[in-house]
Simulated assay, not measured.
Amino acid sequence: MNNRVTMADVAASAGVSTMSVSYTYNQPSRVSAATRGRVHAAAATLGYAGPNRTARSLRSGRHNSIGVVLGEKLTYAFEDPQARRFLSGIAETCLDADTALMMLPNLHRDNDIARIRDAQVDGYVVWTTEIGDPLLDVLVDTGRPTCVQGGPRHPGLNWIAIDDRAAADAVATAASSGRSHPAIVALRPDTRRESTIVRGADASDISMPVTRARLEGYRDACVRLGIDWSTVPTLFTTNNARAEGNRAARVLLQDNMIDTLLVMSDELAFGVLDAVAASGIDVPTRLAVSGWDDSPAAAAAGLTTVAQSLFDQGRSAARWVLGLSDVVDDAIWSVEERISTGRANGPQTSTDVI
Rank of each mutant, 00 (worst) to 15 (best):
R250G: 10
R250D: 14
V251N: 04
L252T: 06
L253G: 08
L253I: 11
Q254D: 13
D255Y: 09
N256K: 07
N256R: 09
M257H: 12
D259F: 02
T260I: 09
T260S: 12
T260V: 15
L261R: 05
L261Y: 03
L261M: 10
L262E: 06
L262Y: 00
V263Q: 00
V263I: 14
V263G: 10
M264R: 03
M264N: 13
M264E: 15
M264Y: 01
S265F: 08
S265G: 14
S265V: 10
D266Y: 05
D266H: 03
D266S: 04
D266P: 11
E267Y: 07
E267P: 01
E267S: 13
L268D: 09
F270D: 01
F270K: 01
G271R: 02
V272A: 10
L273A: 03
L273S: 02
D274A: 08
A275Y: 00
V276D: 02
A277V: 04
A277N: 10
A278L: 11
S279F: 00
G280C: 01
G280A: 03
G280L: 00
G280T: 00
D282K: 12
P284Y: 02
T285A: 13
T285Q: 13
R286Y: 03
R286L: 03
L287I: 09
L287Y: 00
L287A: 04
A288E: 12
A288G: 07
A288C: 09
V289M: 10
V289T: 06
G291T: 04
W292F: 15
W292L: 10
W292N: 12
D293M: 07
D294M: 10
D294C: 13
D294A: 15
D294F: 06
A297P: 00
A297L: 14
A298F: 00
A298N: 02
A299F: 12
A299T: 15
A299H: 14
A300N: 14
A300L: 15
A300M: 15
A301I: 11
A301K: 05
A301E: 07
G302N: 05
L303Y: 07
T304I: 15
T304F: 00
A307K: 12
A307M: 09
Q308W: 02
S309V: 10
L310V: 05
L310Y: 10
D312M: 12
D312T: 11
D312V: 07
G314A: 04
G314M: 03
G314F: 00
G314N: 06
G314Q: 06
R315C: 05
S316T: 11
S316A: 13
S316C: 07
A318R: 02
R319P: 00
R319S: 07
R319I: 02
